[in-house]
Write a protein that binds this DNA or RNA. Structure first.
Lengths: 218, 218, 218, 218
DNA sequence: GATGAATGAGGATTCATTCAT
DNA sequence: AATGAATGAATCCTCATTCAT
């Protein structure tokens, strides 16, 4: 019963100002998707935030799904790049873990919606993300496991436990950025302020060092 | 597990199996709310899962909001109780942190939707939860901070940093249970199996000990 | 991305007055579908004609498609029944053709939207009807071919030509009823009046007789 | 076949290849209008079929309505010409009917979308066609009636019946061409093949002869 | 002449909710 | 207590059309 056939109208070759609008849409959508998730995001909200009418969204993105995918992609790319940069040469040395953590932290600090997006995806089953997850997250996790197996941590914990450790680090980072808005509202402190970020990095760095290097803190 | 003490308000006095239906509704709703969040949950899905028609839901709960609140309440009560038991009179000693972590883990293990519910709330701004958060979570966090300030951790980290440490622990626990379903799908391993739970508890326990007791691992 | 699961809400077990509403919807939809076709029919038009709101339609029919199918089925059933009654015993004699024509005429006279529905379907490719067509129309056509092959017509025309003859009869009947509304508007005469129907039957009967019986008219 | 004499009004003077584009649009639109009718035709479908973007259509036709009118006009002109050629001065003799039928058949064979277009119009009430119908179709029908009244048919049937006879012939022709696409899909035989066309002409010719000449078949 | 962008109107469908039964 | 029926408000999306480029 589908009588349609070809390209609706949107992703034709863009140009000049249209690109700008698309960017603004992505910005607005990113914010809302990150806060409300896919189901909680309404095209009306997005359009209103951008200051255009709903149908205009379709001049730039084929569908809500496509917009969501674009937002996800735009946010994942930096992580991907950072992680592949990191994983590439491979310094199996202990410093590695700390570096990885710093990398993740700084990427997330720069892309503050990413944590929300990822957590929403994780919670709802990651249907939209699972493919991507497989392609980059799994390798990273595997790489991290390896790294630790080679170090002192490997002598204390078995493979599963090392994975859990990595997962824990992942959750600390994600949770930190994801809870920031709420934290501010409830507690008043801004987790994204340079000061708090520095502190978090220090605490987290210590933690990683202890765990992966088995080095008691001075 | 069935703490159905205070029914919502609409159908004041329940009778025999009416109570049972309400329970079944709560069960179904809990599952869906935990996976999809408030916006992603549809009364149709709930009704279908229960095997009744949508309007019947209203015989047991005033509204979607009321149902959601009931689910939240049912899940928070056990935590509340556990935490108040814990925080009440007792020991500021180092073992405290480990005990707290164990308590949280076991409560969450018993109420597996709780993590999802809490994370969804956190992400979407916690509008519905903030009051509750203020009333019980804040005290707990404060208590934990205190506890640590008194111990060796307090000598290494300042107040903010200690809070971040507590927050990190919170995220590890929440993240662990929240990601379990996805993890299983992507990785195949069941984080909720007794074995994995044991391992997580060991790793996490070590971590806590190191952090809060500053005790290097044997 | 389809997060739904089970019965939307409509075709539950109907009862009392609901059935009546469904009937009224079918009546209205039949009229509009027959005149405007599937694409030209709007749920708004249907709802308005019935005197209810659009969403109420969904209490009785799953979708526009389902409603259309129901209309089609309701209209085809009488034809099916008539035709199977007819085809059953099989009087291979010449009178057969005339009888068949009369049967079709009277069924169509009783179900005046049928012709419009069928023609719309035919024109748009019969995607929704093809299955039904195969199951009952083809056999009828085949039966008619057979019948004629056995009679005097068979000696004058080959198989293909006999099929074309049957097709022609089909088009006369369908066209007659389908054009009736327009005819009245343009010409003023009502093709559906008893008088005109009688005349059409006479003319058509003569025609059939001549063709299939090769009997020159007295 | 390209009778593009009077362009629509919007783009008054066409230039070289602009005319060609207009032609291509007409071709595409003709096909889709004939299959789907006015309501079922989308400018997107047309534009896609032509290989241009929707707004470009407006460089050649003022609106969807105008495009439709142009398609109709382009298809009706040949019929009009043929019919006026036929009806003009000539022969009231029996052969006339057969000739008329042949004329119609050959015009329709050459303009295969015409039948679809006409039937869609007829079905939907002919709002767009009625004026044209009045101006040329009515005369033709009248002429045919006259013709027959003068011949042997006139002695057997009254005025109304003769009209019905003419109408029947009209439906046979229209139906034949309109059902061709569906017939092929369902039955596999191509009604538009030269062979089938020849057979149809033979059968139809016989029929006409019998009816209007009252001449039994040899 | 072609087209990206924008949009008012509308199209099918879902949602939470109410009410009579 | 359960549920068919009804509905206002929204949801995603399409359509025909306009306009600036």
């Amino acid at each position: 019963m589908s009588e349609s056939s070809a390209q609706p109208n949107p992703p034709q070759r863009k140009s000049r100002k249209g690109e700008l609008t698309a960017e603004r849409i992505l910005d607005a959508a990113e914010e809302i998707f990150a806060e409300r998730g896919y189901a909680g995001t309404t095209l009306r909200k997005v359009a209103t935030a951008v200051g255009i009418r709903i149908p205009s969204l379709y001049n730039h993105f084929e569908s809500k799904e496509a917009l969501y995918a674009a937002v996800l992609e735009r946010n994942l790319q930096p992580v991907l790049r950072a992680l592949s940069d990191y994983a590439a040469p491979n310094n199996g040395r202990g410093e590695g873990a700390r570096k990885l953590v710093e990398t993740m932290m700084s990427v997330m600090a720069e892309h503050r919606r990413l944590a929300g997006l990822l957590q929403h995806e994780t919670l709802t089953g990651g249907e939209r993300l699972t493919p991507m997850l497989r392609s980059w997250m799994a390798p990273i996790f595997a790489r991290a496991d390896e790294m630790m197996e080679a170090g002192p941590a490997g002598s204390r914990w078995d493979r599963d436990e090392l994975s859990l450790l990595v997962l824990a680090m992942y959750h600390i980072i994600l949770g930190y950025f994801a809870i920031a808005p709420l934290y501010q509202r409830v507690d008043g402190r801004d987790l994204l302020s340079p000061e708090m970020l520095r502190k978090q990095e220090r605490v987290f760095g210590d933690l990683v060092e202890m765990l992966f290097e088995q080095r008691p803190l001075g």
